[in-house]
């Protein structure tokens, strides 16, 4: 037996026990955070913590020896080291068992799908969309247009996108998760988009290409073969612009410069 192993047995906290405690403490702490941290993020964090622990143990040859020697019984050792060894050894199958159980137990949550939030559009299509002069510059937006936009929004959009424009309207919960109505207060939506894009999105809707949202086509171009019968003639182009101005003014975002 080398000197390292002798050291192991007389330490108050052997290396594997310390490592296990760090990993457990980190897991418990992450699980205790409220609101809950998504499971996948905890997995990510735990991966890093385990990696850091492994790196620490394997940086020195003596540490590796101390680690392995902990799992060997030594003549004359007391009950405390034995107990620690058994606890660490019991921990591994217990964790593996929990993991197996957790991954196969029945759950009623719908499967998670990554979806594309914004459908793609050709630059040429966007270039054809002409922003009316009264809607082009935020500084020149008229209060009357924004007020009209608010009325239109309340009549047509609020049921899905919500009174607070946060995508949490009364009908929102009816959509299959995670395809939820857009949350305009999210910094990743209208604040990142140009006016023609938002107009295109509003008027063309979501039922096209690879995008499968329930967003209707609100404005139909004359003779548009793709116009749906439900909402396609509900708004005129000017009304669509008024709704867009309201979205920006209400959320405080400004359109991305073209």
């Amino acid at each position: 037996m080398n000197a390292g192993s002798g050291k192991t047995n007389h330490r108050w906290l052997p290396l594997p026990v310390g490592a296990a405690l760090i990993v457990i403490a980190a897991f418990v702490a992450l699980k205790a955070v409220r609101p809950v941290i998504p499971h996948s993020v905890i997995l990510l964090y735990m991966g890093f913590i385990v990696l850091g622990t492994v790196i620490h143990i394997t940086l020195e040859d003596t540490r590796i020896r101390r680690f392995w020697n902990f799992f060997l019984s030594h003549p004359g050792e007391g009950g405390w080291p034995k107990l620690q060894r058994l606890a660490v050894l019991a921990l591994l199958p217990a964790a593996a068992g929990w993991w197996a159980y957790d991954s196969v137990r029945p759950t009623y949550a719908p499967p998670v799908e990554i979806f594309q939030r914004h459908p793609t559009v050709g630059e040429a299509t966007l270039a054809r969309i002409v922003v009316p002069p009264w809607a082009a510059a935020p500084a020149n937006w008229r209060d009357s247009d924004i007020a009209a936009g608010k009325t239109l929004y309340t009549a047509n959009c609020v049921v899905c996108h919500g009174e607070r424009l946060d995508g949490a309207g009364p009908a929102a919960a009816g959509f299959r998760y995670p395809i939820r109505p857009a949350n305009f207060r999210d910094a990743g939506t209208i604040g990142q988009l140009t006016l023609p894009y938002v107009y295109w999105r509003l008027t063309v809707g979501g039922i096209q290409n690879q995008f499968n949202s329930a967003m209707p086509r609100w404005v139909a171009a004359p003779g548009d073969a793709n116009a749906s019968s439900l909402h396609s003639n509900d708004l005129t182009p000017d009304e669509a612009w008024q709704v867009i101005l309201f979205l920006y003014r209400e959320t405080g975002y400004t359109p991305r410069a073209e």
């Binding site: 609101p35 809950v36 499971h39 996948s40 993020v41 946060d166 949350n183």
Partner: peptide
């Protein structure tokens, strides 16, 4: 750390998670 990652309905807080 991802900015928003709701992996299930139980974990969805509606808005961004304070930590993330």
């Amino acid at each position: 750390t991802p900015h928003s990652m709701a992996a299930s309905i139980e974990e969805s807080t509606g808005q961004f998670h304070p930590l993330l």
